[in-house]
């Protein structure tokens, strides 16, 4: 019944706090809802209505913050409804200027100690898990929680494994963690319930760099398996050996 409701979901507009509105394209993550959120955010940015202060997207929603002195809720809602009606957002293409990133990662070892646990949860041997994770081409579905930190998906169905109820007290910067058919590449050290299956040397946010953020929503990423020694050698490079090519 839940699944049926998701299939027929229509966009929903809700208020966020006092000066925000959220347009949600689903109550759970799906590929069409994610594409719709990214495309609708891009359209909002292009409209740049007077009084709109910030737009962003999360996994399935687009968010607008506005100045209460220049816009009111009823007018903004009407504009959002009008924009929603202009096309089928669920059928939207991916953002422009996408890139494919190849990022070296060590899977398992003491650098990423939860690979065995994650593999077992996914019903694979460790070798199968590494082959699966390193061959998957995943897409940046959203960037959030911490600076430059991507949520990547969608992994094969076997990776629909739960987050741990017991939090890992500290996962390091550059950690690659898996759960619920997604990967998160951590931009800061933090406690987490995601399972630490890989470790990279990439820095996702460099405040002093000309381009402070490495990844953009819509980019694709593949994590190539390297040895701990190779990763050590890549630590001098702020990109940690990550290489990009433009996608048409």
């Amino acid at each position: 019944m839940v699944a049926a409701r998701v299939e027929t979901s229509v966009p929903e507009i809700r208020t966020v706090g006092v000066d925000g509105m959220l347009v949600s394209f689903g109550s759970r993550l799906s590929e069409p809802a994610n594409r719709a959120a990214l495309a609708f955010r891009a359209a909002l940015a292009k409209e740049s209505w007077d009084g709109v202060e910030e737009v962003s997207s999360s996994l399935v929603s687009a968010y607008v913050r506005f100045d209460l002195r220049h816009l009111n809720h009823a007018d903004l809602r009407a504009r959002l409804e009008n924009l929603l009606a202009q096309r089928d957002w669920y059928a939207a293409g991916l953002p422009d200027k996408r890139r494919l990133w190849r990022i070296p990662a060590v899977f398992g070892t003491d650098l990423a100690p939860q690979l065995p646990q994650a593999a077992e949860a996914a019903g694979m041997t460790e070798a199968e898990a590494v082959a699966s994770l390193s061959s998957a081409r995943v897409r940046v579905q959203t960037i959030g929680f911490a600076p430059g930190q991507p949520y990547l998906g969608e992994l094969p169905e076997a990776w629909d494994i739960p987050r741990q109820s017991q939090l890992t007290s500290r996962i390091p910067e550059g950690a690659l963690a898996v759960a619920i058919r997604q990967l998160v590449l951590f931009s800061v050290a933090t406690p987490t319930g995601w399972m630490h299956a890989g470790q990279t040397a990439v820095r996702l946010f460099r405040p002093d760099a000309e381009e402070p953020f490495l990844l953009r929503p819509g980019d694709e990423v593949q994590f190539t398996s390297v040895t701990p020694e190779e990763l050590q050698g890549l630590r001098r490079d702020p990109l940690g050996g990550a290489k990009a090519e433009d996608l048409a």
Partner: peptide, 9 residues
């Protein structure tokens, strides 16, 4: 700073 929510800030 505004305008960086999209990038997690």
């Amino acid at each position: 700073r505004t305008g960086w929510l999209e990038y997690g800030v």
